Computed example of a mutant assay.
Amino acid sequence: MSARHPAPKLPAEQLTIAWQSASLLLDYPDEELPSRLELIEGLCHRLPAAVGESLRSTVRDLRSADLATIQQEYVETFDTRRRHNLFLTYFAHGDTRRRGVALLRFKQTYLRSGFVLDDTELPDHLCVVLEYAATVDQRLGWGLLLDHRPGLELLRLALAEAGSRWHGAVEAVTSTLPRLAGDELVAIQRLAAEGPPQEEVGLTPYATPAFDPSTQPPAAAQELPMPTFPGAHR
């Protein structure tokens, strides 16, 4: 792990199971959902009690309704409420120009591992980040999660307040991370009070070829600093 990030407390195998399970639970529910739930439930016993029980709570809640109901609730939960957003950079930057820079930073991180994301999903989607951290590069994925910890915590709190079926999956992820520090608590409090920035200027830098690392070899990609959350200091 880098000098600015503490090392994980859990073994690598447990992090892989926890993050991949959460990624599957937070993905859009389709016809494969029952088999996913069975697989995740079977792996939970290999995790610490707190992490495993958080995942099991989401498994139970997703089993308690039919697929059509789950799909409707998923859209209502994650596509219509700002504080339930699964795109990590949105919490820090909203729809502002700085979010485009943050999205580039995600893509550059993936390229460092030889991981090329297709164009069907933005690179900061929590399911993508968790799958990358679980199956491609645990060290760099750990860093991405920690850099966006305030957004993760705000998502967890918002889902808990709403009594969402998916709260346990996010809680399992945050349970794998270190205890919150003072600056992170300040950032979370500010996000909870003010919400993400709302300047509507688009994501132009992400779509501009001059800034897009996919148009050049990874070694030549322009390194960009990871934007920090408002109120957080490193």
Rank of each mutant, 00 (worst) to 15 (best):
W142G: 04
T77F: 04
T77A: 01
G151W: 09
R4N: 14
R83K: 12
S214F: 09
G94S: 09
V201G: 11
V75F: 00
I70N: 11
A133H: 08
E194G: 01
F87V: 00
D124W: 02
D119T: 13
P6W: 09
A133K: 05
I17A: 03
D66Q: 11
E131G: 12
P197N: 09
L155F: 00
L159M: 03
I17P: 00
F87G: 07
V51E: 02
Q108C: 14
E171L: 09
Y28F: 15
T80C: 11
T120Y: 07
E121D: 12
D212S: 06
K107E: 15
D118A: 08
A158T: 10
P150K: 03
E121I: 10
P178R: 10
R36Y: 12
S54G: 07
S175E: 14
P29F: 10
G94N: 04
L47W: 00
E200Q: 15
A193K: 13
I188T: 05
W19E: 01
F91M: 03
L88M: 10
L203F: 10
S175N: 12
R46W: 08
T176Q: 05
L203P: 05
R165A: 14
Q71I: 09
R82K: 14
V186S: 08
G151E: 08
A102F: 07
R98C: 04
K107Y: 13
Q138G: 11
R139I: 13
R56W: 00
L55H: 04
T96C: 13
P218S: 02
L191K: 07
D137Q: 02
A7S: 14
S57T: 10
T228W: 05
A192N: 08
G141Q: 03
I70D: 07
P218Y: 04
L122T: 01
D27A: 13
E199V: 11
W166L: 06
T215H: 15
F229C: 08
I17C: 01
L33F: 05
G168Y: 00
P230I: 03
S23W: 05
H84P: 02
G100F: 04
R82A: 12
L111K: 06
L26R: 02
A162G: 09
R105K: 14
E153Q: 13
I188C: 06
V201D: 14
A92N: 05
R190Y: 09
G168S: 01
L117T: 04
L146P: 03
L26S: 00
D79K: 07
L159T: 02
V136Q: 10
A187L: 01
P225A: 15
